[in-house]
């Protein structure tokens, strides 16, 4: 029994740490499928988390926090779009810039507005997204396995967690079953063809980066308003890059993206859980190795040893209309 409890515990924390990865990963999916590389996921998440926490603290409302987080994230995404779509700048350079601007300004503004060393004030319960208990979770708690899974794993998460996992089939539907999705994928593969069909490449790509902004805003909100009770400086701590790694790992597809995020989340949860205690068979694994594993796996994948990750063909290339 204890084994099941431990397992459910680890899986539960896997879900918790996977959510921001998943939201950021899906965010990157929209942008990159439309041919706009985005290494600024990290920065947009961080800015969203800060804006969400600041607004939620001032207005004592999680919903206002969420709204502001999304607005700020979309604003940053539009800067990226302005640089890389309208002015045909280097998308990587623009993404790096977004990350730095977010990293610096969240600390400076946080310190100036709240005077708590870059933190935002601790949020009251109404400023956060609390746990949602699914119906019957308490009643089923004692039923072995199924009841435990239901009450311990599926129930008791915040609204944003459910939103994140529902966003996976939704994204799949949008990308592969709607006209917008078809065009979005086309503009990432062959923008000239889309242009020939009389559809604006720039407007399509702008809509894609706005989707990215919305989802990174949700990712930031989750971190500041659900997982924690406020903003701490540099709280995303490289998750935007892990999400990027997951996106490549998933070969730019929504359902594999979820599994990649769960895998990376599981590694994270496991390394927190183990903290240097020995594993059966393998023996003691250094924490640092566990932490580096997502990055190492991504490099191995990129090297083409676990299938081949082929990015959207027009990714990273600004579109210049024939003249």
């Amino acid at each position: 029994m204890e084994f099941v409890d431990t397992l459910i515990n680890i899986l539960n924390s896997t879900i918790r740490v996977s959510v921001p990865l998943l939201l950021a990963c899906l965010a990157g999916l929209y942008s990159e499928r439309a041919g706009v590389f985005d290494i600024g996921l990290e920065g947009k998440m961080l800015a969203g988390a800060f804006a969400g926490a600041a607004a939620a603290a001032v207005f004592a409302s999680a919903w206002i926090g969420l709204l502001v987080a999304v607005l700020v994230s979309v604003g940053m995404a539009l800067i990226h779009g302005f640089a890389s779509i309208t002015h045909r700048g280097n998308q990587i350079v623009s993404g790096v810039a977004i990350n730095f601007i977010a990293a610096g300004s969240t600390i400076i503004l946080g310190q100036a507005w709240f005077q708590q060393g870059g933190r935002t004030p601790s949020l009251p319960p109404e400023g956060r997204f609390g746990a949602i208990h699914l119906p019957g979770a308490d009643a089923l708690r004692d039923v072995p396995i199924i009841g435990q899974l239901y009450s311990g794993l599926l129930s008791g998460h915040s609204l944003l967690t459910y939103v994140a996992f529902l966003a996976v089939p939704f994204t799949w539907w949008v990308l592969f079953r709607t006209r917008f999705g078809l065009r979005l994928r086309a503009v990432g593969e062959n923008p000239a063809a889309v242009d020939t069909a009389g559809i604006s490449v720039a407007w399509l790509r702008y809509r894609a980066v706005i989707c990215t902004g919305i989802l990174t805003g949700l990712a930031g909100s989750y971190m500041a308003l659900a997982q924690n009770a406020g903003f701490v400086k540099d709280m995303t701590a490289g998750r935007g890059y892990i999400a990027l790694a997951a996106l490549i790992f998933a070969k730019w597809k929504p359902v594999p993206a979820m599994f990649a995020c769960l895998l990376f989340g599981f590694l994270d949860a496991l390394s927190i859980r183990l903290q240097g205690s020995p594993l059966p068979v393998i023996g003691k694994v250094p924490v640092q190795l566990m932490q580096a594993l997502p990055y190492i796996l991504t490099v191995i994948l990129l090297a083409g040893f676990i299938g081949k990750a082929i990015p959207p063909r027009a990714g990273g290339v600004p579109y210049v209309k024939e003249r």
Binding site: G89, V96, A97, I98, F100, I101, A103, G104, I107, Q111
Partner: peptide, 25 residues
């Protein structure tokens, strides 16, 4: 006291944005 060293990170980001990504603006 309101301006810590992190101000440089912002400036760095802005320089990268304007001198790099938006160089043709």
């Amino acid at each position: 006291p309101n301006i810590s060293r992190d101000m440089i990170v912002i400036i760095q980001g802005l320089v990268i944005l304007f001198a790099g990504a938006l160089e043709n603006m």
